[in-house]
Design a protein around this nucleic acid. Structure first.
Length: 870
RNA sequence: GCGGACGUGGCGGAAUUGGUAGACGCAAGGGACUUAAAAUCCCUCGGAGGCAACUCCAUGUGGGUUCGAUCCCCACCGUCCGCACCA
């Protein structure tokens, strides 16, 4: 009897309907089983899902389904990161309402996701642009504001003069606005900030405890936070001090090199620079010039160290007779340390470049180990390594750490104008998070500006501050700002005329707490504290490495802020993090350089050479590099096309096969076809075996050799697959499933076989189906039903392997002579060392390799290897 | 420049983290079935030598440690990623 081909289209829709109807993926908060929260980074509703989503959500779904089978109460929700620029751009370009555009996209993508057969709890779905959600976000903002974690300050921002808006750093490409192409200006604007720096040290220290995060991500965050331990040191002026300044304060991590100081450099934005410039046109010009210099990497690379001598001199803390010139220098950053440094040219490359240019002294004060103090000089390269102090008075002979300690102690004990001259300071690279956006499609910052009362938070009872719907996008700039009525309100405190804050929040705020909202998505307060505490942290979070710093750091901050404002009781939102690789594809281009999509290309193989041919024209195309799927290179493959022609299980299986999940996966037609062949093959194996199977798994008595072998293969696979899924090594789990499928196929039903083999086959098939169920859930349900089960495999517990079947009584050991494998030895597992040695030496290839020599030593590693050493 | 990761057949990769290198898949070649094709099934598949059993070489390159190294150490080459005037 010929088996009918498996029809994924019909089967998948059918099982998806059954799952939905029975609500088996809806999760209750009062379920007594142990919890497991698996979450994939929620998508931006761009309109269509892409292969990256398919990969991400497939991985999460395998974990969710596996954990559910393991008896956990699994929370696996989905939502939409729905505020952001693209909706406004669509509004400007296509005259559509950003709200309608967004919700249409969500509907389209929800439909696509549903065809993937993901075990999601759709009852918890929300979008961040839902009034319900951003209302709660405004409540959180007010709490942060009250706690001093949200504040306003003037700061430098990227300003796009054409679009009239602030741009995030990521939206500035080579110094130009990504949309307008205009040169971005640096502007001082008053903006809202979240005080992430209040948690710098905790965010850093807690990284060590995130042992289920990739080292790479932890390292990136560590570097981003950028802790450095140093000193603030104040220098007194030689002669009259400028108005309003009694000293110049610098930050340094190399206070050991203080005797090598030869100048002071101020940032062009330092208050002293600004003050001096008001009476000095040349200095003012210099500062302006500094501001105009590019801030791109290339510009910084090429930029020369430049300075302007202010004429001021300061006194060396330990050598009253020595004075140092004070420069304004283009390479000193205002927002790190104190915005001023002391220059030690011998031991810092930038300082050296600067000193050479302006003819300043270069005094070596750290002598390399083993160098001769008489002959050691610094040429064009500063010496930044460790060594022994020289030319440094009371520090001479000390190591660098000793010298640092000594300098710190002395400066702390020296009083200058009523304060210690120096103090130890820990400095961080991390800055507060600027969340103001001059944009419409975001969460309004719930604050009112009153001329009399200043900044007045909107009373909680007046929330939500709702985005107006009657806005225009015909002009650049913020539609909220030019809306005729929206911003004009009465002051909640004094009742006088006031205006609303028209900035909206960075969309990264929206994604900084959505995982908490999922735990009680319809609760009246932002979180239902008990639910958040019960469910969080997320046990397994999965997403792209591109969020290593931004989203993942912001969320860690925001969770702490929510803890400190009473919304939940934990610091770390994500206990386990996995960063998946990208989906990449070959590229094809015409001779004129334009790209051609894979769907329009046919690959031909002739004389061992692969050719790409454009289907429409028959013209040969150039096969380009394998790159991330992107619209610009046109190398995308639409998941819906794949699901239409092969089914979701095939797409899911392909995503999990071959490539380790953290690495990039190359999407190939051959690979997908191969995955689909396996789907068909599994169906064939199961459906052809079914008529021959005994009705249900019976006791495995009177088992013959073939039956035992099949049972061992099945239980070995079961043990391995569970282990590999739990460790997210999906590609290896897939390989084990292939192996078991091969083993079952090899033991195909034969006339006259033993009943024991029939029982073993049923057992193996049932295990096989359960093992593949997290990965190919539709096919698994169909097979499960074919095997005679009335329940759902999606609701079945994960089977337990039989440990006795994993134990072998005979074992095959490789036998080496001098480290080279010469033979194999099959022997009882519990054979004594002496027996193993004797048997190994008796092997013909071993005797040949020994050539009559007596072994010096025989290494026997039990259950591993025998090595005969001559 | 600083920091990090990686390098295994034609390709994706596996290897119990010091113990049989190349599991599993893809591609390729050969065969069976078929009027033919598709589908399916069987065989071969790191390199060199040999009819063969087998031998030698081989995990980027060169050294080292070890009975034994893809794995540990040193140096180098290459690829990729992050940060970037952070004092």
């Amino acid at each position: 009897m010929a088996t009918e081909r498996y029809n994924p289209k019909e089967v998948e829709a059918r099982w998806q309907a059954v799952w939905a109807e029975r609500g088996i993926f809806e999760t209750r908060n009062d379920d007594p089983r142990p919890k497991y929260y698996v979450l994939e980074m929620f998508p931006y509703p761009s309109g269509r899902i892409h292969m990256g989503h398919v990969r991400n959500y497939t991985m999460g779904d395998v974990v969710a389904r596996y954990m559910r089978a393991m008896g956990k109460n699994v929370l696996h929700p989905m939502g939409w990161d729905a505020f952001g620029l693209p909706a406004e751009n669509a509004a400007m370009q296509n005259k559509v309402d950003p709200r309608a555009w967004t919700y249409d996209n969500i509907a389209a993508m929800r439909g696509q996701l549903k065809t993937m057969g993901l075990s999601l709890d759709w009852s918890r779905e929300f979008a961040t642009c839902d009034l319900d959600y951003y209302h709660r976000q405004q409540m959180l903002f007010l709490d942060l504001f009250k706690a001093g974690l949200a504040y306003r300050k003037k700061s430098k921002v990227n300003w796009d003069p054409v679009d009239q808006t602030v741009l995030a750093n990521e939206q500035v490409i080579d110094g130009r606005g990504w949309r307008s192409g205009a040169l971005v200006e640096s502007r001082d604007l008053t903006q809202w900030f979240f005080r992430i720096t209040a948690y710098s040290d905790d965010l850093l220290a807690a990284l060590d405890r995130l042992d289920r995060w990739p080292d790479k991500v932890r390292l990136m965050q560590r570097n981003w936070i950028g802790k450095s331990e140093g000193m603030r040191v104040r220098f007194a002026f030689d002669g009259p001090a400028p108005e309003g300044f009694d000293t110049v304060e610098v930050f340094t991590t190399r206070h050991d090199t203080l005797f090598g100081a030869s100048f002071i450099a101020l940032s062009p934005d330092h208050p002293l620079s600004t003050a001096l410039a008001s009476g000095n046109a040349k200095l003012a010009d210099f500062i302006t010039e500094c501001h105009h210099a590019g801030t791109s990497e290339a510009a910084i690379e090429a930029a020369e160290k430049k300075g302007f001598d202010t004429g001021l001199r300061v006194i060396h803390p330990f050598r009253p007779e020595v004075t140092l010139p004070v420069y304004v220098a283009n390479f000193v950053l205002m927002d790190y340390g104190t915005g001023a440094i002391f220059g030690c040219p011998a031991h810092d490359q930038r300082d050296l470049d600067f000193a050479r240019k302006y003819g300043l002294r270069v005094i070596p004060v750290v002598l390399p180990h083993g160098a001769d103090p008489q002959t050691f000089t610094v040429g064009e390269e500063a010496y930044v390594e460790d060594g022994t102090l020289i030319n440094s008075d009371f520090l001479d002979g000390m190591s660098v750490p000793e010298a640092k300690e000594e300098v710190a102690n002395r400066l702390e004990d020296t009083i200058l104008y009523g304060k210690p001259q120096g103090s130890r300071q820990v400095n961080y690279r991390l800055r507060d998070w600027g969340i103001s956006r001059q944009r419409y499609w975001g969460c309004p910052i719930p604050v009112i500006h009153c001329e009399a009362c200043g900044i007045v938070p909107v009373p909680v009872a007046d929330l939500p501050v709702k985005l107006p719907e009657d806005v225009t996008f015909d002009k650049p700039g913020n539609p909220l700002d030019r809306h005729p009525t929206w911003k004009h309100v009465k002051c909640p405190t004094c009742g006088g005329p006031a205006v609303r804050e028209t900035d909206t929040m960075d969309t990264f705020v929206d994604s900084s707490w959505y995982f908490a909202r999922f735990t009680a998505p319809r609760a009246d307060p932002p979180t239902e504290r008990a639910a958040a505490n019960d469910w969080l942290p997320v046990d397994q979070y999965i997403g792209g490495i591109e969020h290593a710093i931004l989203h993942l750091l912001y969320s860690r901050f925001f969770t702490r802020a929510m803890r400190d404002t009473g919304h939940l009781d934990l610091a770390e939102p994500f206990a386990g993090l996995f960063t998946q690789g990208m989906v990449v594809h070959e590229t094809y281009r015409r001779p004129d350089g334009t790209w051609v999509s894979p769907a329009e290309v046919r690959i031909e193989e002739a004389e061992g050479r692969r050719r790409a041919v454009e289907i429409a024209t028959g013209a040969e195309l150039e096969i380009g590099g394998i790159e991330k799927m992107s619209k610009s290179k046109r190398n995308t493959v639409d998941p819906s096309d794949i699901i239409d022609s092969y089914g979701a299980d095939t797409a899911r299986w392909f995503m999990l096969s071959d490539s380790p999940p953290e690495r990039d996966v190359i999407w190939t037609e051959d690979g997908v076809a191969g995955a689909h062949r396996f789907v068909q093959r599994l169906w064939r194996i199961v459906s052809e075996a079914v008529p021959t199977l005994p009705p249900a798994a019976a006791a495995h008595d009177g088992a013959d050799e073939a039956a035992v072998a099949l049972r061992k293969a099945a239980h070995r696979a079961l043990a391995d697959v569970g282990e590999h899924i739990a460790a997210l090594r999906f590609n290896v789990a897939v390989a084990r499933i292939y192996e078991l499928a091969n083993a079952v196929a090899a033991a195909a039903p034969k006339a006259g076989e033993s009943p024991a083999l029939g029982h073993a086959r049923r057992e193996a098939l049932e295990l096989l189906v359960q093992m593949m169920a997290p990965m190919m859930p539709h096919l698994a349900e169909e097979c499960w039903k074919a095997l005679g089960h009335s329940g759902l495999v999606a609701a079945a517990p994960w089977p337990k392997f039989e440990p006795s079947l994993l134990v072998e009584d005979m074992i095959t050991l490789p036998v080496q002579v001098n480290g080279k494998k010469r033979s194999e030895l099959t022997i009882a597992v519990d054979a004594s060392q002496a027996d193993v040695e004797r048997a190994a030496l008796a092997l013909e290839p071993v005797r040949r390799a020994l050539q009559g020599n007596t072994p010096k030593k025989i290494v026997v590693v039990p259950k591993r290897i025998v090595n005969v050493v001559v």
